[in-house]
């Protein structure tokens, strides 16, 4: 199932924050290197302030490294300009945040459809496919609701549907379970597992919860901006 060499590769990335224009400041990430093959479900753990979110924004082409390279699907992020990054995010990346972050004026269906519209599908086509995505996550009955009319767990599942709308290579989730009760949380983690193992998506999920981390194929632990452990679960698909 996996490709040789992996689809995501971080090479010696460093990121400093708080300085002016990326120079100087406080080093938040130091010499991070790892490679993730296709279809792997990775849990990123570490104490608060260890740099997990910062790493995720870099992997998501939302932020730029101070040094080092990030390769996804044969493209190095540093070579992309702002518009190309936007397009890259649209086509190859999917984000899920702790606070689900749905657009409040749009229905669940529309929230999922917007990335597809941006990609070039017509509105009808986008909504048709968005409906299929929602069905996949058991939300078809709620497609016409606005975020305010959905529970936290439902909102988070809608945002997962949005993240996978354009069938991205890489799904990045920043503490997606942080705001959910345990039942909804395990449901969400289960979805990520399925996406990785059955749909071949690479998933990197930040979590505090050891139990959920254990459900991943691999656990990467950060401490003060450095990888302190990188453990693949026995019997994982890699």
């Amino acid at each position: 199932m996996s490709e040789k060499g992996g689809i995501l590769e971080a090479r010696n990335i460093c990121r400093s924050l708080g300085g002016t224009d990326g120079e100087g400041g406080h080093p938040v990430l130091r010499d991070i290197s790892f490679s993730v093959p296709r279809g792997q479900f990775v849990a990123l753990t570490g104490a608060s302030g260890s740099g997990k979110s910062t790493l995720l924004y870099l992997l998501g082409a939302l932020d730029r490294t101070s040094s080092g390279e990030i390769w996804l699907d044969g493209v190095e992020f540093g070579t992309l300009d702002d518009d190309e990054r936007a397009e890259f995010r649209n086509e190859k990346l999917g984000f899920v945040f702790q606070f689900h972050f749905l657009l409040p004026e749009f229905t669940a269906l529309e929230n999922v459809a917007i990335p597809m519209m941006r990609r070039g599908l017509s509105r009808d086509e986008s909504e048709e496919r968005a409906y299929a995505m929602l069905s996949l996550l058991g939300l078809e009955a709620l497609y016409a609701r606005e975020p305010g009319q959905l529970s936290g767990g439902e909102q988070q599942r809608v945002s997962i549907a949005r993240a996978i709308a354009n069938e991205p290579k890489l799904i990045l989730a920043d503490e997606p379970t942080g705001n959910l009760d345990s039942e909804n949380a395990s449901q969400v983690v289960q979805i990520f597992r399925t996406l990785a193992h059955e749909h071949g998506r690479t998933v990197i999920m930040v979590t505090h919860d050891q139990h959920f981390a254990d459900l991943a194929d691999r656990r990467i632990a950060l401490k003060d901006g450095q990888i302190v452990s990188d453990i693949s679960a026995p019997g994982a698909s890699v």
Binding site: A86, R89, F95, L103, R119
Partner: peptide, 16 residues
């Protein structure tokens, strides 16, 4: 601000 950040993260360009 938050909605703008979301729109950018799902692939809208600055120009959009």
């Amino acid at each position: 601000q938050r909605d703008i950040a979301i729109l950018r993260s799902i692939g809208l360009r600055q120009e959009d």
